[in-house]
């Protein structure tokens, strides 16, 4: 269960952004809607433990994540939260498989080659396992970044604008993969977007005004 309690954040010199309380039950799939500048990215960062809000608390699985030390929070994030960014950022100097193994070690987990193969296979990209990111297409990279986000079986899977730079066909393909992977790994899914195309796929919506 994920809970947002009376959270507000101010960037220096701007007005405070207040966020409505939000409760997400395990396994639910949510859409976080909001135009640019509405604080969508801020809320995502707060939700993922990247940005400490000025006021309020965030609970993930009964842990108040901002009461953890910096080091513990990093590890908690690595183990329980999978993040998919708008553009797939992989470490260029490592192969696809190594990028996934990196996610395992940084989360403090043991290297599990089988899991890596399994996840890559479920996204139909396992044939590129030993290739370097520079040799993959944008669509393939997007799938790898989904694989990296789910490799540690996170409780929460968060995607930031995963479809906004894609055409209709690819946008729905990625959306399908996200829904399928969150189901497969029993992860709660939150997709932040201003892309109205994906709206119908979700029953739960948290809208920023």
């Amino acid at each position: 269960m994920i809970e947002l309690k009376s959270v507000a954040h101010t960037y220096s010199g701007t007005q405070a952004i207040k966020f409505r309380d939000w409760k997400i039950n395990n396994g639910e799939q949510w859409l976080l809607l909001g135009g640019s500048g509405s604080g969508k990215t801020t809320l995502l960062h707060i939700l993922t433990g990247i940005l400490k809000p000025e006021i309020g608390k965030v609970f993930i699985e009964d842990t108040s994540i901002y009461e953890l030390t910096s080091r513990k929070l990093d590890q908690f994030r690595g183990r329980h939260i999978g993040i998919i960014f708008q553009r797939p950022h992989l470490i260029k100097s490592l192969t696809i498989a190594e990028n996934l193994i990196l996610a395992q070690t940084f989360a403090g987990l043991k290297t599990d080659q089988e899991r890596v193969t399994e996840v890559l296979a479920s996204l139909d990209i396992d044939h590129k396992m030993h290739a370097y990111p520079a040799t993959l297409s944008q669509g393939q990279l997007q799938r790898v970044s989904i694989a990296r986000a789910v490799v540690n079986r996170p409780a929460l899977l968060i995607a930031d604008e995963p479809t906004s730079s894609l055409d209709d066909k690819n946008a729905f393909a990625v959306l399908d993969l996200l829904l399928q992977q969150s189901g497969l790994n029993q992860a709660t899914l939150v997709v932040a977007t201003h892309d109205k195309r994906v709206k119908d796929a979700f029953t739960n919506t948290y809208e920023l005004i």
Binding site: D74, Q75, R77, F85, I91, A103, F106
Partner: peptide, 13 residues
Amino acid sequence: YDLAIMRTLGASR
């Protein structure tokens, strides 16, 4: 950006 990603993956400072 790479290093920030590493942090989101759980690497400590």
